[in-house]
């Protein structure tokens, strides 16, 4: 073989170190497509508001300050029942996206091979997970902001006694609930299974967070059990911050513990196909 017969094909120079190139477009496209699903929009954005308005106007006495039903030394004395419902509804708003929406999204991706398809491109498949966390977290904020605004306009909300505790409880609740959602997302393969499993987790959590028995009317046993669940702890901690005094240490520790255990676990267990 002589040198003349050697043909060297032109090699295009390509910058390496890609992996997140195009993430902005990925995020925008995923958000656009996600919002095309009317269920996402309803449950993610409107549901907390609809529930608050429905309960506030639908059930008699929800807008009357409680003076007879609770003892004068209660943190809820003089507060309207609908206001005591707020912490639970906010915790639910987070849980709806984290536990109902997220696992179904990822199970669908896995089922359809979206994650696999993405791993054949220079984009890391992790990017789509990050994109959906961003979308769901952002939607949670939008839904909660809408609920608070409407609640303020319709009922007038009590100013939280300890704003920092409420915000902290909300954010930590978000972390722990999204960690739980990610654990489900990590392992569930089929969208139908994801739906079933998510419902099995979601509805008991709602119950323990006081969706049917908020604040003052919550049976003590529900409160005792609920404080160890991420959604119940978030609702109770926000309750304390909103209407009471002191720092809800137990609830904060519970939420932190769920996060510390579940988040690394979900990263470890995440199945790509």
């Amino acid at each position: 073989m002589t040198a003349a017969t050697v043909t060297t094909a032109p090699t295009r120079v390509r910058p390496s170190g890609a992996g997140w190139r195009g993430f902005g477009r990925l995020l925008r496209t995923e958000a656009t497509v996600w919002l095309r699903d009317s269920a996402s929009v309803f449950f993610g954005i409107l549901f907390p508001t609809v529930l608050l308005v429905g309960v506030g106007f639908g059930i008699p006495g929800m807008r009357e300050p409680m003076t007879d039903d609770v003892p004068p030394d209660s943190i809820w004395y003089g507060v309207t029942p609908i206001a005591t419902y707020l912490p639970t509804v906010l915790a639910m708003a987070v849980g709806t996206l984290a536990i109902l929406s997220l696992p179904v999204t990822f199970a669908t991706f896995r089922d359809k091979g979206v994650l696999r398809r993405l791993s054949t491109t220079p984009m890391r498949p992790q990017a789509i997970i990050v994109a959906h966390l961003v979308i769901n977290v952002a939607t949670t904020f939008v839904g909660v902001a809408l609920a608070l605004t409407v609640a303020q306009l319709a009922f007038g909300i009590v100013r939280p006694e300890q704003l920092g505790v409420v915000v902290g409880a909300f954010l930590l609740g978000m972390l722990s609930l999204f960690s739980l959602g990610m654990l489900l997302s990590a392992v569930v393969n089929k969208p139908s299974t994801a739906n079933a499993v998510a419902s099995l987790v979601y509805f008991p959590l709602l119950f323990l967070a006081g969706l049917w028995t908020p604040g003052p009317i919550m049976p003590d046993v529900v409160r005792q059990i609920g404080q160890f669940t991420p959604m119940g702890a978030a609702a109770q901690a926000m309750d304390t911050g909103w209407f009471g005094e002191g720092f809800p240490m137990l609830q904060f520790v519970v939420m932190a513990a769920w996060t510390v255990v579940l988040l690394p676990l979900s990263v470890r267990l995440f199945r790509w196909a």
């Binding site: 190139r21 477009r25 990925l26 496209t29 491109t121």
Partner: peptide
């Protein structure tokens, strides 16, 4: 996702 969205999305991943 629409055809053109998918194609534009993937185009963004490449140099």
């Amino acid at each position: 996702i629409t055809v053109s969205e998918a194609l534009n999305l993937f185009a963004g991943f490449y140099a």
